[in-house]
Amino acid sequence: MFELIGNIAAVLTTAAFFPQVIRTWKTKSTDDMSWSWLLMLTIGVFLWLIYGISNSLLPVTAANGVTFLCLSVLVYIKTSNFLARR
């Protein structure tokens, strides 16, 4: 039962990033995202990914792998916007 709860939580928290990534990709606007939030969350998710891999925890690895990819897209767009303004 608790594994099911964990799997549902992993799917929901990972899928929660999709609307933001899609919106950011379409609008190319990252003005409302702070660098500190984006970088801290990206690093934290990456560490969770390493933790999941090192402990062979598939739900943790899968959820954080997908979330890390989503955050990487956001970092890429934010970086591109930053460099374009210089």
Rank of each mutant, 00 (worst) to 15 (best):
S34L: 00
S72W: 04
R86W: 03
R86L: 15
T42W: 04
L47T: 14
A16M: 08
S34V: 04
T27L: 08
V60S: 06
K26H: 10
N81R: 11
W25E: 05
W35Q: 00
I53V: 15
T14W: 01
L12W: 05
T27A: 00
A10M: 09
I22H: 04
S80N: 09
R85M: 09
R23L: 06
L47S: 11
A15E: 01
N81Q: 12
A84G: 01
I43P: 10
W48F: 13
Y76I: 05
L39F: 06
F46Y: 14
S36A: 07
I53F: 14
L49M: 09
V73M: 07
D31Y: 02
G52L: 07
L39M: 04
N64M: 12
I8F: 08
I8M: 10
R23G: 04
K78P: 00
T13V: 09
V11R: 04
P19H: 05
P19T: 10
V11N: 00
S36F: 09
Y51L: 14
I5N: 10
L12I: 15
V60P: 08
C70H: 03
T14M: 03
T27M: 13
A62Q: 03
T30Y: 07
I22A: 03
E3K: 10
T67A: 11
K28G: 12
Y76L: 03
L71M: 08
A16F: 03
A9Y: 05
W25I: 11
L58P: 05
F68I: 05
R85K: 05
W35E: 01
